[in-house]
Each structure stands twice: as C-alpha cells, then as structure tokens.
C-alpha cells in the first residue's frame, strides 16, 4: 500500500512545525504504542533472551536479562550437538523457495489468460477467493491418501505441492487485481506491432507485474515457511521443516530449553527479516483483503 508509505513520510516532514503542547502529547502516543508493541512481542523477546542464557541461568532467574550471555545454544543447534536442525532448516528453505517458484509459474500465465484472454471467466477468480476460505483441514485426509499413492509423502516436492495448493488462491487474487490496473493499450500496441501473445506477456506484462510478483513471493515464502498442519500430516522424517522440527524438539530433547529457544528464534528469523525489509509488500498484500492463517 503505497498510500501508507507516503503517508508516514509526509507526516514525518510535517512534524517539526507542530506546536509545543501538541508535541508533548505526541510523546504520550509514543509511549503507549511502544508499550503495546512490546507486549505483543513478549513471547519472541523472551525466547531471544532465553537463547542467550547459559543453562544454569535459565531456571535460576527466568525474568532477568542474561548476566553472562552465551552463544552455546546457537552453536548446539547449528552444528555442535548433532541435532537434525540444519536439515530441517534446509528443508524449509527448499519448500518455501520451491513453492514460490511453482506458484508463480502456475499463477502468472493462468491469471493472464483469465483476465486478458477471457479464458474461463471471472468465476475462476471468485472460486480462488472462495477456496481460500475453506478449512485446510478438509484436505488433510484426501491429501494423505493421494500423496501416499503418488509417492509424494515425506518428500520435498510433495510439500511444495501442498503449499502451492494453499497459496495459489492468494497469488491469483493479487495478480488478477494488479493486471486489472495495467492499461490494456500497451499490450494492444504490442499486438499491433506484431508481437505474439507470449512475447507480450514475457517482455511487456511481466516487467509491469514485477512489484506484485515481489509481494506474492514474499507472502508465499512466509506462509509456506510457517505451515505446520500439512507438514505434520505429510512429512515423517526426510522432508520435515523447521516448524515441525522445532515443535518436536520439546518432546525429543526433554528440557534443553536453551537449545529449543535458539532453534525457535533461528526458525523465525527468515519470515521476520521479510517483515522488516519487505514491509511495504507485506502490508499491500495482506491488506488487499486476502490473507491466510
């Protein structure tokens, strides 16, 4: 949402002339917003703090900051203790990147055909929105049976397919509304110049769609990185992603709280980095009314 970004810059520019009493009142909002921002992030901050505490300190003073911070838990999780965590992390990365690519490859040409070449009609877009609203749990049993039959159970391609299923509707919705905003005259001019439909799509439409493609990629990456339900059902060991792996840490390693917190912090890092650095795309994608939980 560009409105949003513009707005925050203009208000920043407007601030200096503000009168003194108004200025003092503004700080009240700073404090209130700061406290709320802190509260909603308490679980995350707590996990970060625990991950830097030596084992002895974790149980002794749960509330305080780490007095002698350590990186041991991160070392344990990443290489020292022989956990499967690095493999889970690699699985998640492959699943998320693979899903982004597959979603784009399927959604872009199809959306172009639907919106510009009037293929099938608008009902496809509407049913994509509808599909997003149906509970994913309905598909758990049929997917389990289907994936066992196809040999996709506990494989990376299998989880890529499942996450593509979850995210395609969102991609089609966002791409179709972006296509609707691109003036058709440009494509018509290209057609008059003799460009084929594929060339028009590849060299004229794709560059214009680039910002939306970035938004879709960021959202799809985060959502497939964060998936848990399908990972739980469709992976047993070799395709296990971090969400499942980190949740299993608790039972499989007993009470190694420091390692668990380091693992959960590391696993949350990729989506959080996107949240910070690609915020503009996230906000536009999420607030155009199409979101997954």
């Amino acid at each position: 949402m560009s409105v949003l970004v513009n707005d925050s810059t203009t208000t920043a520019a407007e601030r200096p002339p503000a009168k003194a009493p108004g200025h003092r009142r503004a700080w009240v909002f700073t404090i209130v917003a700061g406290v709320i921002a802190l509260i909603v992030n308490v679980p995350l901050l707590n996990a970060v703090l625990v991950s830097f505490k030596p084992d002895g300190e974790i149980a002794k003073n749960p509330i305080s900051l780490p007095t002698s911070p350590t990186l041991d838990h991160y070392a344990n999780v990443l290489y020292a203790s022989g956990y499967d965590f690095p493999r889970f992390f690699a699985n998640s990365a492959m699943i998320a990147v693979g899903t982004v690519l597959l979603v784009l490859v399927i959604a872009i040409p199809a959306t172009y055909a639907i919106v510009r070449l009037n293929f099938g009609g608008r009902w496809i877009i509407s049913s994509a929105s509808g599909l997003r609203l149906l509970p994913a749990i309905f598909f758990v049993v049929p997917f389990f049976i289907l994936f066992s039959t196809l040999g996709l159970a506990d494989t990376i391609p299998g989880l890529i397919a499942a996450n593509t299923f979850l995210n395609l509707p969102l991609a089609i919705i966002l791409l179709s509304s972006a296509l609707g905003d691109i003036p058709q005259e440009i494509e018509e001019a290209a057609a008059v110049d003799g460009a084929s439909i594929y060339r028009t799509l590849g060299s004229i439409v794709l560059p214009l769609l680039a910002p939306t493609m970035v938004a879709v990629s960021v959202l799809v990456f985060i959502f497939s990185w964060n998936d848990y339900l399908f990972a739980l059902v469709l992976s047993t060991s070799s395709a296990t992603p971090v969400t499942l792996g980190a949740a299993n840490f608790i039972t499989s390693t007993g009470i190694r709280w420091g390692d668990i917190s380091a693992a959960s912090v590391l696993s949350t890092l990729p989506p959080l980095l996107f949240a910070v650095f690609a915020q503009r795309y996230l906000v536009s994608g999420l607030s155009s009314g199409a979101v997954k939980g």
Partner: peptide, 26 residues
C-alpha cells in the same frame, strides 16, 4: 504522527509473521 511511529508499526506487525507453531513453542 508521533515520534517512533515507523519503528513501532514494524514491531506491531512482527507477531503476524511468526509461524503459529513456533509461537506455540515460544
């Protein structure tokens, strides 16, 4: 408009990005 708005806006969005399963662990 208030000082620090941009930072707090970003911080407020973070919980949405954390995988619910990992948030459960946290």
């Amino acid at each position: 408009a208030f000082p620090g708005k941009k930072l707090f806006f970003t911080l407020l969005l973070l919980p949405i990005m954390v995988a619910p399963a990992l948030l459960g662990v946290m």
